[in-house]
Design a protein around this nucleic acid. Structure first.
Lengths: 332, 332
DNA sequence: TACACTTATGAAAGTGCTTTCATAAGTGCT
DNA sequence: AGCACTTATGAAAGCACTTTCATAAGTGTA
């Protein structure tokens, strides 16, 4: 019958130029209210919807950026995600979130995303990717920014996990603790919980330097989940040489420690000190001392970086490391 | 530097016109084998991907659905969001997340989204919308599904908040508590924390019916945030007639209660019982008794509903209410 | 070899938008 | 009234292809 309307029809009906119609859609406030009304009416009358692909073509981009993220269960991811959102939104970008469960899914996205033309930029959070992937995206002019993951040819924002561990060690020793233990989550691919290992490494090394090396028995990795975290802590606390402080790979584990301690009638911080990592909201709620990294900030910065690369593709690759500091609360 | 190649480049390299290149892609058999070879080679050399083709293919393979959500700070939203993701992903849909901060933003999205042609369906979580908005989306054939928000003409998945309150009342009285209090968050638009009010209403009514009406002084609303939550609880606990149980509008407040109680050396559940709402992960971590609603499930169901509407736009509007039940843990 | 017929190819005109740049119309101020 | 500004609007030039139509070769046939 009668075909689907375009801005030309809208322009004709509302007696303005297509430019004005277009402007009405993109910068409504730059169109006089009177004109706005006419266009609005014409659109309603014609039942007009802009063709998304035409828009994308003319704009030479979709004004959409994607984000690859392992899951939403970890509070730290969510907080970073929130930072990404606020920045990107204020710049007028849409965010497409891809939850990645398996290595296969990750590879699927990594190989389809650059070709599909659906996103202008990509943020990858805590998921590993290779040279080939980077090449692929680069070829299609889609900038990548890593959060909590690094690659030589891609801007990233990370923290110095080793230093984080050292910081924890210095702090705990400074507070008078002597027998430190470590609890962390043993991750599976594709999650680069590699970070946990680095934190431990720094922690361990620094303790040695300070003259209070860790007992091998005081290192404890457990699989994902609160149950595991608790039983792991219980085992740790019940050792012959009980540690007098526990440094956790993340705030999450710290909660496990609190629960285990309560069950065993061990007081925190009197009997045992407790230090988390991340300073997620929950650490604040529960008054857990922790190593703070600015999660929201990291998201914002990453978002800013993609935008910079989008604005000027010649922009240099930047590797930013966020500051870390100890937040003393009630568990140390 | 090196942009993504177009048919122009391909044409140039293979020394044919763009027409022929285009034809090669659409009707290869109408191109001489010799020419075909040249083009093929040029494409390979340039690593060319037809953009429009990609867009079109992408368009039919994976469509896009949007989700309007107030913020990611509330754990309950995140869990629902996760449910939405898993279902939608398995059906090959992309998810565009719009974080809504203000009433103005909400209206902005609500009026732009249907017209912009960027999404095929929309999930609205805990944000109010009106008849006109619904009309708008309907006109453009974009199905809406509400989570935690209802509208006559739109499928939704909600819970019976009033009943939830009643459930809490029955449970607490059944456990022997007699002086119940309520703590909730006083929300600001556009967040329809209306739910909190309904929970209170059911709670209050049922308590009356059971013969243990609430003291007016035992109802406490506070603004968003842990601080507020704690001080609110402290005030409550310090009343002349101290309540022997507190029902919280969400698990979040329950944490505040725990902290306040600890500060005041009041034991839970011995001195005072505590019941949360939602059964977010944190309630599990902290062993808080609570009213469970299947958050993840609600996300999954909502996602399923959009898909159904997309597959068959004649699909009837369905209002589903999810089951609620008491989860008894260590605080009651 | 001349004539009609097929191919094979390219120039140019869409496609439905955005964006840049120029111009017209107001506005305030002296 | 005259001048500098500040909107509000439109003409036209993209964007990455597809399509139409014309033309140049190539093929078969009388």
């Amino acid at each position: 019958m009668n075909k689907v309307p375009t801005i030309y029809e809208v322009a004709q009906v509302s007696k303005v130029s297509i430019t004005t119609v277009s402007r009405f859609m993109n910068n409504p406030d730059k169109v006089a209210p009177k004109t706005r009304l006419k266009i609005e009416q014409a659109m309603k009358e014609l039942d007009f919807t802009p063709k998304a692909d035409a828009v994308a073509r003319a704009r030479q981009g979709s004004r959409r950026i994607g984000i690859l993220i392992p899951f939403l269960t970890a509070q730290s991811f969510v907080e970073r995600l929130e930072g990404v959102h606020t920045t990107l939104r204020s710049e007028g970008y849409e965010i497409v979130t891809y939850l990645v469960d398996t290595q296969r899914q990750l590879q699927g996205y990594l190989s389809m995303l650059p070709v599909s033309g659906r996103i202008d930029g990509l943020i990858i959070m805590a998921l590993p990717f290779g040279d080939e992937d980077v090449e692929n995206f680069k070829r299609h002019n889609i900038p990548i920014v890593g959060i909590e993951v690094e690659h030589r040819d891609v801007s990233s924002i990370t923290i110095d996990d080793v230093f984080g561990g050292e910081l924890a060690a210095s702090y705990l020793i400074g507070k008078g603790y002597r027998q430190c233990a470590f609890i962390g989550e043993g991750g599976e691919p594709p999650y680069s919980l590699h970070a946990t290992g680095l934190r431990l490494k720094g922690f361990q090394k620094k303790l040695e330097v300070l003259g209070y090396p860790m007992d091998e028995d005081h290192i404890c990795f457990h699989p994902y989940g609160m149950e595991a975290s608790i039983s792991c802590t219980k085992a740790l606390i019940s050792r012959k040489y009980r540690p007098d402080a526990i440094f956790c790979g993340s705030d999450f584990q710290a909660i496990g420690v609190i629960k285990a301690a309560r069950a065993l009638h061990i007081r925190i911080p009197e009997d045992i000190g407790l230090l988390g990592f991340d300073d997620t909201m929950i650490a604040g709620y529960m008054d857990i001392s922790t190593i703070r990294q600015s999660l929201v900030r990291s998201g914002e910065m990453a978002a800013g970086m993609v935008i910079d690369h989008l604005k000027d593709s010649g922009n240099p690759v930047i590797h930013t490391q966020l500051e870390l500091n100890v937040v003393e609360r009630l568990t140390t």
